[in-house]
């Protein structure tokens, strides 16, 4: 290998073609519109998701209220069934006899 060749090879990457990215007003316009559309889509997506979650929250809240009402009804029913008037009127009570005398065991 001669010196000249070696020099050429050594400098062969020194020369580059300058890449120029030129954007005209139309391109910029397009990119701006695309960006706006993209952002709008993202926003719509978020709004839709929020609405969906709102709907879910509403549904769950309604279910919670429903369950609370059911619980309340059951508590009232339980209290009603345990009330003295119910107990007195029950079949078990009908089979009982009231005692007239009570005996006490005297401790020795």
């Amino acid at each position: 290998m001669t010196t000249a060749t070696a020099t050429l090879r050594r400098n062969q990457n020194l020369t580059r073609n300058k890449l120029e990215f030129k954007t005209g007003p139309i391109s910029v316009g397009f990119m701006l519109v695309a960006l706006i559309i993209l952002l709008s889509l993202l926003y719509l997506n978020q709004v839709t998701k929020t609405s969906l979650f709102n709907y879910k929250i509403s549904n769950l809240s309604a279910k919670q209220t429903d369950l609370e009402n059911q619980k309340q009804k059951l508590e009232i029913e339980a209290a009603r069934l345990q009330s003295l008037s119910e107990v007195r009127a029950s079949a078990n009570a009908a089979g009982m006899v009231k005692t007239d005398s009570v005996s006490f065991a005297t401790p020795q």
Binding site: Q72, E75, I76, A79, Q82
Partner: peptide, 9 residues
């Protein structure tokens, strides 16, 4: 504890 006054709708 026996409830003697409770809430309803």
């Amino acid at each position: 504890l026996i409830p003697i006054a409770l809430n309803t709708q």
